[in-house]
Each structure stands twice: as C-alpha cells, then as structure tokens.
Design a protein around this nucleic acid. Structure first.
Lengths: 344, 344
DNA sequence: TGTTTTTGTTTAAACGATTAAACAGTGCCA
DNA sequence: TGGCACTGTTTAATCGTTTAAACAAAAACA
C-alpha cells in the first residue's frame, strides 16, 4: 500500500517570508516580533497581527537557517565509549535533561574506545557545528583533544581525564574512592584484600589501583604482588574469572575483593555464584559503580557510588559556561559514596 | 587560570570562498571538485590544486550551510521513553551504528512516556529539520503521529505501534511470544501459570496478555481471573511485589510465572530471592527481554528475547528508504526467541 | 571559413533566517 | 519655520553552501 499523500498536497512549511507577505510587512519586522526584539518600537497592532498569522500558518523557525546566521546551533555533542553501557546511558540521560533545560539538544556517539571512531565522531559533530563537546575520552586520545584546544572549541571531559592536559573535566576522585573502600574492609577486619582492576593507560582507572595500594600501605599491611590482578579493558570475561579463581586459590586465599568496575563485578559474581564460597562470611566484595545485576546476587553487593547526576549537570553547566563566555578551566574530582549492603 | 588563547589567535575555519580565493577560481568550482561533481569536465590540474589547498587549509564542509541549501540534514531523531533504560539504550546503539553506516547522525530524546515531553521533543527535532524520526511512542500519542502523517514527515515506530494507524512500524510479535512462552510452560507440565503484566493502553503490551490467555484457552486450561495481575507502567515495584505475593499465596499457588518485562522480572525475582521458594522446582519463571540482572539470580531466568539488533537495523533502513524515496508503508512483527536457562 | 560541439569555468540566485543601518513620518521645542 | 528626537518600518548584507544556467575559448566538423 503506498502513501496516499502526494507531494502536491503537502502542507509546506511557512517561512518568515510567507508571514511577511501575508501581513504585508518586511521579513525583518516579522523576525523582530517573533524574537521579541526591539521591544518598545513595534506597534502593538502590527505585532499582534504578525503573531496571529504566524500561529495560523503554524510557523516554526528553521533552526538550520538561524544557526547558519547566528553561528550557534544550540547543540552539544556527547562522545562516550558505548551508549548501551548503563553507566554512560544514565550519564547521557542526565546530560540530556540538563541541556534541555538550557535550550540545548544533545547528539550522542559511541567510540568503542577506538581512536579512529572517536576522531570520526568528533569530526562529524564539528562539521555539524556543535557548540561544544562532552567527552568520555579513551586512551591515546590526547592528540585529538589538542585539536580542540588549538581550535578553541569548548569541551569538558567526563569520567576520564588526562592529568597532563589543562582542560575542563568532571571526574571521580578514584584514588579516594578506592582508598575509602579498602579502609572500610580493613576496619571490618579483613586482612587479605585482593583487587581485580584493568590493565590500561586510563588515568582514572589507575587511580583506583593507586588508592588500593596506598590504603594498604598506610595501614601497614603487606602489599603482595599477586593480590592485584589486571585484565584487559574489553572482552575480559575469561580473564576476570581466571583472576578471581587465582585470588581465591593458593595457600592464603583473599578474604575480600575490590572490583574496579561493575562489569568486572558482574563476571566475578557470576563465577562466585557457581562456587561454594559464602559472601560475606568467607569473602567480602566491594564493587565500583552500581548495576541492577548486583542487586540480585543473594548478598547484594556493596559498592562505591558515583554521583552521576551531579557529574552530568556539572559537566553540562561547565560546558555551557565555556560556550557562552570564554572563561576559566574547571577541574572537579567528585567524592564517591560507599553504599553498604550485604556483601561487605 | 584563564585560557591562554585569544580570539585573535584563533585559527578560523576555512570556507569554500577562502579556498577559491587562494586558488584563484570561483567557489562553484571548488564545490564541484570537493563533491566530485561534473566529473569529466574539470581540468585535472585545477582539481588537484583545489584539493591540495583544501587539505592545507584543513577545510571541512559546514553541514549547516549545506543542509540549508539541500534541505537535508542527514540527521534522524530518535524518541524513546528513556534512554537510560537498557532496552532503549541498546536499541539506540544499534540504530546509531546503522545510521552511521549510511551517513546519518542520530539525535536522541527521552519522553518519559509523557505526551507533552514527547511533543516538545518532536517539535525540537523538526525545528532542527531532521530528515525523519524513529519513535517508541507512548499511550495517547496518536494525534502527534497524525501531525507527522499530515505533514508527510517520514517516521517509523519501534517496539510500540497503533493497530489503527497505517504507519511504518517494527515491533515484536508479542502475542506470539507470550503464546510460545505459555505453551512451553504447559509442555513442561506446569498447570497453574500466573502472569504479571501492565495495566496500560499500549497495544504491544496488551498483546502479551492476549497471547497468554489464548495459549491457555487453546490447550483447554481454565482461565482464572486472579491469575493475571496488572500493575502500573511506572513506579510499580510495590505493586509487583504484591502481585507476586498474591499469586504465590492462597489455596492453589501458581507453579509458573510469566513476567511481562525485565523490569517486572527484576522486582519479582528480588522478592522471590527473599522467600524460600525453589526455582524452578516449585516455580518456573519466564520473563520478557534480557537483563544482565537476571543472570545473577541463582537460577538464571529463561526469557523471550527480542531481536534488538535486527529491529533497529530494519527500522533504520525503512526510515532511510522512506526518506530517500517516498514509498510504501512497511509493517513488521518480528518473532521472539525463547532463551532457555535454568528458571523454566 | 564559418558553424557547431565540447570543455572548463563563472555568474548569480537560492536556502531561511538575523541585524546593523538607513529611512520616512510624526511630534516637540525654540 | 527649521531642527531634532522619536517611532515604526524597510533595506540590504550576510552566514556557507549548492547548482542551474550562462559564457568564453578551444576543438571538431563540414
């Protein structure tokens, strides 16, 4: 069945010109009225008539045309590793809401942590003249960020950042979060704490390892090489299982586990589910980030919660500030909250 | 620390005009070359020089300007209920990938199932001249869809659709899926099958109830009123718990549960986790849609899997077809797959 | 040699807005 | 009566592309 409606019958969109013609004035006047500019100077009667006709014709301003002239698209680009990852989709949602409040629209892209996908997205967004970018960057992406800096394009990093780069960012105090988690475990009397973390260049993830090590050191616990396992950033399910297995085996198995992401936690918990280890009695678990999956484990997992909403809002507002004025560089490390449940 | 870089030092973007001036030709020629039009007619030397200068100046076409002229933005709008819902974020990701393959960018918005948010998003997207829309509509949104139809704006519904509306859509065969699930449970010897579903006008969700009822009827099982519980579409955690509790209580408790969404399944399973009921021995469970949470239950949940990737690709391609040509209305109900795990 | 074709390029008008500057007309004041 | 200040509106340029149509020069044809 093909569409009944033919091109000829289409209601075509009204433009300023159409309104101007119908009212018998210039397009300039129509523009002034519809944008509430030149407030006092336009005769009430004409303004009224223009608004009336605009409404009759169901006028809507063509943002593309406006953008071309004003050089502002009221659009921001968001680049994350993968929008189907709940961490990023939640972040995206908060950003969307905050941006909307301020009259901005968001376009989203997933880089899959690949440099070239990232660059392609960035270029696509810039070609569309986005007013600014919010970026969860990946390893080795500094050079692309330099491009943004060199071209004075406003952007804010979220979640991940580069300590050597003097840019806006909003991230977690990952060092502090890991430190806090380990401290809590030690206070609870755990003596053999293992960690499964990522083998990566990403600064924010390395901060978690650093926090783990520092907490142990400060409390004068021995730092055993084999207790800190590293797995690849992607497709690491098997490696995670091996890491957990190793930590639980041997002469002195761990009595507590710090897991560097909810992805790691998921894989780890799935494995532990199939073993006969009792959580938290024999093994305490603390994970980073929430995940509804971790609720369904028989001992819901204790975790370090990121203030996602605040981070998103802050990042958005820093970006919009930096779009509207050309101001300072703002760097924020937010505190994580320890959400205590049954696993530790 | 304020930005070192001053406006004056900014590398300003090169336009066709800049290239034209540098090479000493008209902008038209530059445009033709850079777009590979008028292939045979342009002298090799000049074309070469233009490309060279374009590259030197780091030229990138201004899509806004191009869009204004060509009346094509190469952008599609995606409206879902909530992008932070994994179902939609996965869908979004597949759509993003497919759209990207065809040279389109996606802008996403969340309606929260609210009519007015939906309309506002739709208007925002249309003001930005999107070439078409992919929509997971909500209840009572037909009138806004009529606006799209009346204005001949290409769109495709996903997941949800309105049987009375002659529009493109890609959805699940929800009737068939529920039917299949119930049939499976009956074949496995379950005799008392309960369902927790939604109290809603949404056709696709009602189809699930219809499938449940039809399967029972066809196998000549009695249809007991109290066995089909309905809960509100949002914030229904408590209602779900009450429904499950009721189904498991009384003289003849159910020995199987069909759960109309992974959200319902999550709440239900959380409750069941705290009871002493053995799954699947005493109770079989089948859910709609996957959710990593359901993996972590001690008896991973059997579920009806939607072919999300195929749905997303199909929806995208139907939309792009309908943008490029002005062709037929395509309606697709896809088959769900029963993924058997331990819960049933 | 004059005419037609082909080749390579330019001209100029659009797309739909925004906005500084110009311009009439009116009222006010000295 | 002339000058000035308002008031209300228009003119016209511009944003950066695309593209039909025009054009000039060279090549082909007859």
């Amino acid at each position: 069945m093909s569409s009944q409606r033919l091109k000829g019958q289409m209601k075509k969109k009204a433009s300023l010109k159409d309104i101007a013609q119908k009212v018998g004035v210039s397009t300039a006047l129509v523009s002034y009225v519809l944008n509430n500019k030149k407030e006092g100077r336009i005769s009430k009667a004409v303004a009224e008539r223009i608004r009336e006709v605009a409404h009759e014709m169901d006028y809507r301003t063509n943002q593309i045309a406006r953008s071309l002239k004003t050089r502002k698209t009221q659009t921001i680009g968001l680049i994350v590793a993968d929008i189907s990852n709940p961490f990023f989709s939640k972040l995206a949602r908060f950003i969307e809401d905050e941006a909307d409040k301020k009259g901005y629209t968001v376009i989203i892209g997933s880089s899959d942590e690949y440099q070239d996908k990232f660059r392609k997205l960035m270029d696509t967004f810039l070609d569309r003249q986005v007013d600014g970018l919010i970026i969860a960057a990946g390893a080795k992406m500094e050079k692309h960020l330099h491009y943004l800096i060199d071209n004075n394009i406003p952007f804010v990093l979220v979640d991940r950042y580069f300590p050597k780069l003097h840019t806006n960012y909003v991230a977690l105090d990952n060092f502090g979060a890991a430190y806090k988690a380990v401290n809590y475990l030690l206070e609870k009397g755990r003596k053999h704490i293992g960690m499964v973390a990522y083998d990566t260049e990403l600064h924010h993830l390395n901060e978690r390892k650093r926090g783990y090590l520092a907490a142990l050191k400060d409390k004068q616990f021995p730092i055993l090489k084999g207790r800190l396992k590293e797995v690849a950033l992607v497709n690491s399910e098997l490696a995670i299982e091996r890491a957990v297995t190793a930590l639980l085996a041997g002469k002195q198995p761990v009595d507590a586990l710090l897991l560097s992401s909810s992805y790691i936690a998921n894989s780890a918990v799935k494995l532990i589910n199939s073993l006969s280890i009792k959580v938290p009695d024999e093994l305490a678990i603390i994970s980073f980030d929430e995940s509804e999956a971790l609720d369904l484990f028989y001992a819901p997992i204790t975790y370090m919660k990121q203030p996602l909403c605040e981070m998103a809002q802050l990042a958005t507002n820093i970006l919009l500030d930096s779009i509207e004025k050309n101001n300072k560089v703002t760097q924020v490390n937010m505190e994580a909250e320890l959400i205590i449940r049954q696993s530790a």
